[in-house]
């Protein structure tokens, strides 16, 4: 399914949410918010009234795995909008990736959930197709994967 979509097709998908990332010549870049007073960076860029206190900053595309786990049961719907039911649920890995001097970002981790993940390993940003079970279509979202 997801693997059948090639890179070009993923780029054409509608993003899961606006303002999470932008594409620079087809390369995804996450968008954080830098606090105008403290200089601290958060992800995602805050929205609404809170946005006035932040400047949008592009985040580094690579970083180090800070921690990880595997989601082994289907999360409750709502809020989860992934496909399937408890029986055919496909586990996925999640983690935090430390983008040096910027921020530690929580993310889905692409690929086999049982791949070897090790704290400190190099990770890079990618776009991943995400199937919306309630709309029967794919959107794109951000994820990290180990640097090959």
């Amino acid at each position: 399914m997801a693997e059948l979509l090639d890179k070009e097709e993923i780029l054409k998908l509608e993003p899961l949410a606006e303002g999470l990332f932008r594409l620079d010549n087809g390369v995804p870049v996450l968008l954080g918010g830098k606090n105008k007073e403290t200089g601290k960076i958060v992800f995602p860029m805050p929205s609404g009234a809170e946005a006035e206190r932040f400047d949008v900053v592009p985040l580094k595309r690579t970083g180090k795995l800070w921690s990880w786990t595997v989601q082994r049961f289907r999360p409750k719907t709502p809020p989860y909008r992934g496909p399937g039911d408890d029986k055919n649920f496909q586990p996925y890995a999640v983690g935090y990736v430390e983008l040096e001097d910027q921020v530690i970002v929580e993310t889905r981790i692409m690929g086999d959930p049982d791949q070897t993940l090790k704290i400190g390993m190099e990770m890079e940003l990618a776009l991943e197709p995400f199937e919306l079970g309630d709309e029967d279509k794919y959107v794109s979202t951000f994820a990290f994967k180990p640097v090959a």
Binding site: L16, P78, P79
Partner: peptide, 12 residues
């Protein structure tokens, strides 16, 4: 939190 955070299964 933004809705997408729950949508894609990070809110557990």
């Amino acid at each position: 939190l933004p809705q997408w955070y729950g949508d894609q299964g990070l809110m557990l």
